[in-house]
Design a protein around this nucleic acid. Sequence first.
DNA 1: GGGGTGAATTTATCCGGATAAATATCATAA
DNA 2: TTATGATATTTATCCGGATAAATTCACCCC
Lengths: 259, 259
Amino acid sequence: MPPRPLRRTKLSDIIVQDVKRLIVAECLEPGDRVPSEPELIAQYGCSKGTVREALKALQVEGLVTMRTGPGGGAYLADADPEPASRMLRNFLHFRHLDGEGVYQIRKVVEPELAASVTGRLTPERFAALEDNVAECSRHPETEEEQHRQRILELEFHNILADACPNPLLAFIGRFLNEMLRDLVVLKKAYVPERHQFGDSNVGYHRLLLAAYREGDAARVRAIMLAHMHDAERHMSALEGEMANSFLLEFPGREASRGV
Amino acid sequence: MPPRPLRRTKLSDIIVQDVKRLIVAECLEPGDRVPSEPELIAQYGCSKGTVREALKALQVEGLVTMRTGPGGGAYLADADPEPASRMLRNFLHFRHLDGEGVYQIRKVVEPELAASVTGRLTPERFAALEDNVAECSRHPETEEEQHRQRILELEFHNILADACPNPLLAFIGRFLNEMLRDLVVLKKAYVPERHQFGDSNVGYHRLLLAAYREGDAARVRAIMLAHMHDAERHMSALEGEMANSFLLEFPGREASRGV
DNA sequence: GGGGTGAATTTATCCGGATAAATATCATAA
DNA sequence: TTATGATATTTATCCGGATAAATTCACCCC
């Protein structure tokens, strides 16, 4: 039933593979130039539409970025996990992943992540964590502000993820935060009880800061584990009705650049 | 520096968004029909190229599949994590993720996953696990066979992941296995010591089967944790030189359908 | 010398047509 | 009744052109 590929593989796919091989062969680094539209047209003797499709595919895979103007063309892009993250979120929302599902992972991943950055926090990052705690400690006035503060608390965990030297662990940490963010954005039902949870969250964050100051990785791990278990218990209120709203762009997240 | 979107948003992007909204509004399920090429052309009064680009974008996001022939057109696709998985693997390979990095996550995720499927294994899955252990217990003859057996051992963990009701946990479990598979495929250096590790792996798998038979989730967790720590120690031999080989299609994995 | 203007380059978007391939349906024949 | 083959429908691929937008760089004026 799935439309199998046609007899001869698409010309644009051949170009895609060739360009990838070129990247490997030449050991290109992000920022290096890749054959541009007119060059590929000349090389393959095809129309620009075909070349454009190949370059677009490489863009979609996050491998190249295009620049206009003189000296423009295709350049090897900095690796960016966002497209993959977005597709994965779509997939999981389709599968009706709920808050409890996120916390089943989070409660084992966040302690490991938090412990692993002990002693690796730059002064800038540590200051950012302190700022975050300070801002989340303020008493919110409006409902809207309370809601934003709720999301701001997640930023604490994002800063930790950014400090993690393991790219996979960093990605998963960020990803889980984004999933929770989607859930919080979709369901303001979470807000009413914010005081109880919010204060509790920030309290754990303060304890974590103290443990980081002492460089006590074991205590960091223990505090984060307790934090996660505590938060998990409060997640039951976030169940259900995710439906298909994921397809629409969430406010506050920059719109994806289409395909 | 990134080429910002042009003044007016692309027509194909508008179509993409409209179709997504339609999917949400009509609560479409996988397999349901989505407006086809000629319908969208009539609706938007644009050329087929533009409509094709929109439908292609929806394909790339894994939301729809196209069918040819009468009654063909665009249909809401079954959610598939493969495209996201592939992009994420590319990203991580670019970041030179190594075996140790994978195991930092794996050692916390696999025990949770393994424990969570205790008592949920269907007879079919349990039989598949037993078959896997039996096949991995055979004495490999050729080098090639040893190598394939090494990969086959990973399948044990994939079966567990498939049994996991949490879609995120299942995805991460499968994903980590794929990352390891890439590493093993790329570096046959792993093979020489296969006996030591291979036997050890299968031994843990046997212990897990026994614990599953008794429905002892705590013991499953403990065994898997020991399994992971054991395997992690042997991972140092798998370090380094991932380079950019990720871009090429790995043998044994079906080629991606281009863009 | 500095700052603004415009030309050149390159990609971005869209068009409509031509041919090929896949598939469901229906008619036909065994 | 069943199997086979023709037909119609729909997507797949590719082409080349036209216009618009963004960026760089050289040039010119002050």
